[in-house]
Design a protein around this nucleic acid. Structure first.
Length: 695
RNA sequence: GGACGAUUAGCUCAGUUGGUAGAGCGUCUCGUUUACAUCGAGAAGGCCGCAGGUUCGAGUCCUGCAUCGUCCACCA
């Protein structure tokens, strides 16, 4: 019956996780029959690009806490695991690996390269799932999914064809963001803007019929002037009044282009005149469409010049820029150069400067889908936590563009139409996650039982990338919201408030923390810091605190076990009369902590719950009650009280620190002990009246 | 350029509807009391970012400013 003097997480965690798996309770179908009402969370599938980081750990801890809480409350809980193929991202890491071996994906060829990625996926997919086990996550492994497993591919196909038949998917040549390194189109959301020092070049365009007059345009991309097909000014701008409709001579190319007007032109920027390159800029493209301007593509998919005077043909962008500037200077067209700081779009995966080029791509019309995605949020059927995310969510939808869903990479779902070689944006499949994982498009029992899911927890930065798309997909294909509550959790930052990044070496590996402090300590330390959506500047102090707390729980339990011996005791609340005043007090305080913990977890206030539990256990129970128990115990009655208080505390703590609570539970002398603390009944409390008057 | 959030003890953070500032870690003092030295008892340490305003009273409400962060945006 004696517990070892100190708690050794390493010895306990593996053993306990095995016990849980063998109990079958991770699987809702194997829970006791009393668990009837379904409660579902589908894990945000980690990318198979690599190992889990602190963000994943935080997210998983939140989900496991909720699931364990709900399971103890008697729900038929399903927490479904899985991983995401993560198109461009995974392709890139595998390409990087190949590059180290001196190879490129083109050396291997498409088929071999994809085999290579599958090998990577198998390796890292397994690592990820094992890491989740180390964290103590109570996921139903029998339902593990991958966004490219067979059934899932069927779902993607079905969804694509559904939109296609509806006429919402269309193919068109549009200016898209293009990564010349990844050789693929990117959606707006896949761009990252970086501040860069650049220059603003002022170039003179002479009037065709009067070489003494000219318009000066300002540009940060002089090389694109080779593809100019107009100059645009604001219709209200008096400076250009007599010039509208006239022709200008495009320098270096020597071709006539018109002066047009457009409301988009900012009178105050540069010279008030914009050189219009419809092929290589979104705004210019729009202006071009309005004025039916010619689209001259001068930059190709590899970032080289085409359709330009011979001396520039085939050059790279930056080389061309130098040459063009030099030539303009020499020929007297360059008026001046200014220093200029601006935001440059970069590929979010490889950080190459992204080009805008016209390209034939598949687009999903967002007009109706944006409305569909907005409605349940507006109506309050889907709630964001914190609620402040509702506004930016709806704002973004009101200004949305059609979604470019095709990608020119090799790793992903092929477009399910004859003669199409491209693959789909990775988010096209992620969008189906809450129901495709449950078997859709088949009408499975799981789908019927577990959809809609209950809670989604996710990081802030994929709110638009992912959450929006799951909502409209859920509404479109299932006619029901995919989840009710969206928890947008904190970003885990470094101590200095910077983003954790593997490449910068500022990342902390959650597995190292588990190794050093134990899984429970790591979990509790994280939970302790979850205050609303407030970002977390990670410090190890909290994990250390978690470790000390576990030790405290362990030793308090040792004490209780020593005092209560081997006699099986009731687990019901002691109702004896003549309890000591300390007995009465701890039972009263316990009742309060049961109530507050229940309420705090329900409201997703994990940090608050953790703080209160810590204070209760350490101070009320250990410092005060146990000390009094040593001198004022009333024998058997007090023994019941101390055992009951410990057992109830373990139940309350279990969602946060599952391993140690289970280990102790397994040794407690209680009647009718369940196979696992996981399925012990969550403590109930007598509801107190709200809003007590202040004294 | 817009939106949102942050600014409280050396560090990381709590502070519910306005009523004399709290925790963990760190520091200092004392303590080998029948669970725990990963402990116990106690202490030091804060003009609660700045400037105004409302109020009997403001860390808490209002206005402005500063710094930092995140997201969004077609200023070439």
């Amino acid at each position: 019956m004696d517990l070892p003097k100190t708690y050794e997480p390493k010895e306990v965690e593996g053993k306990i996780y095995k016990l849980w798996e063998e109990s079958g309770f991770f699987n809702p179908d194997k829970l006791p029959k009393t668990h009837k009402k379904p409660f579902t969370i589908v894990i945000p599938p980690p990318n198979v690009t690599g190992e889990l980081h602190m963000g994943h750990a935080l997210n998983s801890v939140i989900q496991d806490t909720i699931i364990r809480f709900k399971r103890m409350q008697g729900f038929k809980t399903l927490w479904l695991p899985g991983t995401d193929h993560a198109g461009i991202a995974t392709q890139n890491v595998v390409e990087k690996k190949l590059r180290k071996e001196g190879k490129s994906r083109f050396d291997l060829g498409r088929e071999k390269f994809i085999e290579e990625i599958w090998a990577w996926k198998n390796k890292y997919g397994d690592i990820i799932l094992n890491q989740l086990k180390k964290l103590g996550c109570s996921l139903d492994w029998s339902r593990t999914r991958f966004t490219m497993d067979q059934g899932y591919s069927e779902a993607v196909k079905e969804a694509f064809l559904h939109y296609y038949k509806k006429g919402w998917l269309y193919k068109g040549k549009r200016v898209v963001s293009w990564c010349p390194r990844c050789q693929t189109s990117l959606s707006d959301l896949e761009l990252e803007y970086e501040e860069e020092k650049g220059k603003l070049w002022y170039i003179k365009y002479l009037l065709a019929d009067d070489k003494n007059k000219f318009i000066t345009v300002a540009t940060t991309r002089p090389e694109t002037m080779l593809g100019d097909t107009a100059v645009a000014v604001n219709p209200k701008d008096k400076r250009f009044k007599g010039l509208i409709g006239k022709k200008l001579i495009l320098p270096l190319v020597n071709k006539e282009i018109p002066v047009v007007t457009d409301d988009l032109i900012d009178v105050n920027f540069g010279t008030g005149a914009l050189k219009v390159t419809p092929a290589h800029d979104f705004v210019d493209y729009e202006i071009g469409q309005r004025h039916k301007l010619e689209i001259v593509q001068v930059i190709d998919e590899k970032g080289k010049m085409i359709n330009v005077p011979e001396k520039y043909s085939g050059l790279r962008i930056l080389e061309t820029r130098e040459k063009v500037v030099a030539d303009l200077q020499e020929q007297g067209y360059l008026e001046k150069i200014e220093e200029y700081q601006h935001q440059i779009p970069k590929c979010y995966r490889c950080h190459t400067t992204v080009e805008s080029i016209p390209s034939l791509q598949w687009f999903l019309n967002m007009k109706e889908l944006a409305k569909i995605a907005g409605k349940p949020v507006k109506d309050g059927k889907i709630k964001f936590h914190p609620a402040s995310f509702k506004k930016p969510y709806l704002d973004w939808l009101s200004n949305i563009k059609d979604w470019c869903v095709s990608r020119q990479i090799w790793w992903g779902h092929k477009i399910p139409l004859e003669g199409e070689n491209d693959v789909l944006d990775t988010w096209f499949s992620s969008a189906l996650w809450p129901f495709a994982t449950l078997g859709w498009p088949e009408k499975t029992k799981d789908l019927k039982t577990f959809y809609p899911t209950s809670v989604l927890t996710t990081a802030r930065d994929i709110l638009n990338l992912w959450v929006t798309r799951m909502i409209f997909s859920g509404m479109e294909f299932m006619r029901k919201i995919p989840f009710e509550d969206v928890i947008i959790h904190a970003t885990v930052l470094t101590r200095d408030g910077k983003r954790m990044s593997k490449s910068l070496g500022t990342g902390i590996n959650p597995m190292d923390l588990i190794e050093k402090y134990g899984a429970d300590a790591t979990r509790f330390g994280l939970s302790f810091q979850i205050m609303g959506g407030q970002d977390i500047k990670f410090v190890e102090d909290n994990i250390l605190m978690g470790k000390k707390f576990c030790n405290k729980i362990w030793n308090a339990s040792r004490f209780v076990l020593q005092k209560t011996g081997n006699t099986p005791l009731l687990i019901n609340k002691p109702k004896d009369k003549d309890l000591t005043s300390a007995d009465k007090k701890i039972l009263k305080t316990l009742e309060k902590i049961v109530e507050s913990t229940t309420k705090d977890i329900k409201a997703f206030n994990f940090g608050k719950a953790a703080h209160k539990l810590y204070d209760f256990f350490w101070h009320d129970f250990c410092d005060v009650y146990i000390e009094k128990f040593k001198t004022q115990s009333s024998g058997a009655k007090s023994q019941k009280v101390i055992l009951y208080t410990l057992l109830t505390s373990l139940k309350l703590l279990h969602p946060f620190i599952p391993f140690i609570t289970e280990e102790i539970y397994q040794q407690l002398p209680v009647k009718n002990r369940k196979k696992s603390l996981m399925v012990e009944k969550w403590p109930s409390y007598v509801k107190t009246s709200e809003g007590k008057p202040k004294s």
